[in-house]
């Protein structure tokens, strides 16, 4: 064997950093299977929404004001609410956990692009895909919901529907993607990360339906005004107003009745007043407004006006995007420190 003398390695000119377009192409090559699966789910949902919209108006009008919700639309809205869960479980959770589990991080993280730029680019590309598809799905569902909203059957204020507009659905999908990625980086096992993501994102979606949306809608001061007696309810409402009324499109939070001197009536007395007004109105013997005025009663409602809907939407999405950004930073930090 011949021994070679050590040869100095001359420093060479640095090449240009890998541009983002090739990195995006690498991301597509690596994740196209999962993304095509998500696109197929997206297409199926979109098709179902279009069919629902085309068949819905006649159904909605046949029900009339105050009727029950359209069950097929409600089901569709619930399915669309699961879109973020699907993104988190099937796109986010395996993103890093599969690399760690299969050992391919030893290939990817030692390429010229470097682990930080690789993870950031991958997240950005997948986030772009997620946001665009979620916006599309949310817009389609909003288009479908319009047919119901005009006749007062459904309202986008309602928990469930509040989370599936283009704005909030995109926020939820982005949050789910990054939460799944973060959990995958922490857990390092695909199946466990997918289960944890399904549990956590699914749990948060349910919590949002049950409670979080109500809490969000309570953060801004409510508008309080005297309202006409019809279409009035008392107590804690957290519901939408009927279409066509004075508060049409608003989110009703609480209704109450005041008597002489502006004193609020207790529940029993208030119900007596409401019963009288409604039975009189049904019989058509008395003008309810006049009757109330004569007896020094007034009906009051506190609510979020319809004009605030998109402000709340942006606030909800901003909270989700902020959380997603924090999780993304934590994920990058985890990846950088992984040794």
């Amino acid at each position: 064997m011949t021994v070679r003398a050590p040869v100095p390695v001359l420093p060479r000119a640095h090449g240009h950093p890998v541009p983002w377009r090739p990195m995006a192409r690498a991301t597509w090559l690596q994740h196209r299977g999962g993304l095509i699966g998500v696109l197929m789910l997206f297409s199926t949902c979109a098709l179902a929404i279009v069919v629902e919209r085309l068949t819905a108006p006649s159904y909605a009008r046949s029900l009339g004001v105050g009727s029950v919700n359209n069950p097929s639309f409600t089901f569709l809205a619930h399915v669309v609410q699961l879109f973020p869960v699907v993104i988190g479980v099937f796109v986010g959770a395996p993103l890093i956990s599969r690399e760690l589990e299969s050992g391919t991080f030893r290939f990817t993280w030692t390429q010229e692009v470097g682990r930080t730029r690789f993870v950031v680019t991958t997240l950005v590309v997948l986030a772009g895909f997620t946001v665009v598809s979620a916006c599309g799905l949310g817009a389609l569902l909003g288009w479908c919901a319009h047919g119901f909203e005009v006749v007062g059957i459904q309202s986008q204020w309602q928990p469930g529907l509040f989370d599936v507009t283009p704005v909030t659905l995109a926020g939820w999908a982005l949050f789910a993607l990054v939460l799944g990625t973060f959990l995958g980086a922490v857990i390092g096992r695909s199946v466990a990360a997918m289960a944890a993501t399904a549990f956590s994102v699914g749990g948060l979606v349910v919590a949002s339906n049950l409670d979080l949306v109500h809490r969000l809608l309570a953060i801004a001061p409510l508008v309080t005004s005297r309202v006409p007696p019809l279409s009035m309810a008392i107590g804690t409402l957290n519901s939408t107003s009927f279409a066509g009324g004075e508060l049409s499109g608003s989110w009703l939070v609480r209704g109450w009745v005041t008597g002489t001197g502006g004193r609020e009536l207790n529940g029993l007395a208030a119900y007596d007043v409401m019963d009288h007004v409604q039975s009189a109105a049904v019989r058509g013997v008395t003008d309810p407004t006049r009757w109330l005025s004569l007896h020094h009663y007034a009906l009051w409602m506190s609510y979020q006006p319809a004009g605030r809907f998109w402000i709340f939407q942006v606030v909800a999405a901003a909270i989700l995007v902020f959380l997603a950004a924090l999780l993304a930073l934590a994920t990058v930090r985890l990846v950088r420190r992984r040794a």
């Binding site: 890998v18 192409r25 690596q30 991080f105 030692t110 390429q111 692009v113």
Partner: peptide, 26 residues
């Protein structure tokens, strides 16, 4: 670096694997 047990993306074709490597190195 070629790691122990040669961790490559098993679900990709050889051509795609080459494309991934090409896109990650200038």
């Amino acid at each position: 670096f070629v790691a122990q047990d040669v961790p490559l993306y098993k679900y990709l074709s050889v051509r795609s694997m080459v494309a991934v490597a090409r896109n990650l190195n200038s």
